[in-house]
Amino acid sequence: MIKRKNMIKRKNMIKRKTWQGGLLYISIMALALLTLLPIVLLVTNSLMSGREIVSRYSMDITVFNVLNTEYIKAGDAPFHFVEMTFLPDYITFYQYFKLFFKSPEYLRLFWNSVILCVPIVVGQCIISVPAAYAFERLQWKYKEHLFFIYIIVMLMPTQVLLVPHYLLAEMVTLPPYLAIILPGIFSPLGIFLLRQQLKGFPHECLEAAQVDGAAHGNILYHIVLPNMKPSVAVLVMITFADYWNIVDQAIVFIKNVFDEPMSIALSKVMQNDTGMFFAMACFYIVPIVVLFMACRDYISQELSFVGVKN
């Protein structure tokens, strides 16, 4: 009797679980779709011709969208709603053609972005990994206070430090790219993220290795680094995304319009030529998505990570 009741209970539980599981999947999928919506729109809109973009998005009434205007109240101006769509009326690659072959100056800007971001990311990794390890292993009375200062500096908005950086750059006559790259390399974000990862690291392993006679460098390279890979991947993603997007410092430090990174040109093109803006935005997103895919393995390692590798 009791066995039967238990079996029924278990069956009910399984049914509820599968029903709950299905709901779970649906809700997560809906959220994921919602998250990806703007990006998908970006890609599909880049395949539209310029005329279609204007007729779809502008508030003005043109020949092409006059049939879709609404007359809200008698006497008010007629009104054209934005017609966003996943499928353009006419799919054309003209915007990409215009971007790559007719306006080569944007490719130059893209290259500027790359030579601005890559040294920063590489430098961050080189500097932050040993520093985080040192922070963790150091025995010093004021260690936490120093870390506190790091955190405070990390939270500063950019305008605060812009004028002093400019002064420094002028005093030492740094070339404009270096004036942006050097502060980026020494940003405290890296140490903060990596140290948090290291906090969960059992000290016994490290001390055992030390007793066995390994130097700090060896410990770092052989034991700690493989386990920190996910954090480093996250750090690379965050730093790259930050500096791929840079606007404030670039406007001030870089004097020549042709040396600017592409992030600044995006907002200008958005107002002037909306069609090419979509193509440019898609092109601009590609490197970072590629980097993301490359780091994906490490990050999903993090996602399924349970214990410490020895």
Binding site: F79, W244, M270
Partner: peptide
């Protein structure tokens, strides 16, 4: 799914502003 949620973080601001405007604007 986990990675899908990470993607908005890496998209540059300038790229998506247009989409936000189109959604929330007067004729959006």
């Amino acid at each position: 799914f986990g990675l899908i949620f990470l993607i908005p973080m890496i998209i540059p601001a300038g790229a998506v502003v247009f989409v936000w405007k189109s959604i929330f604007d007067v004729n959006g």
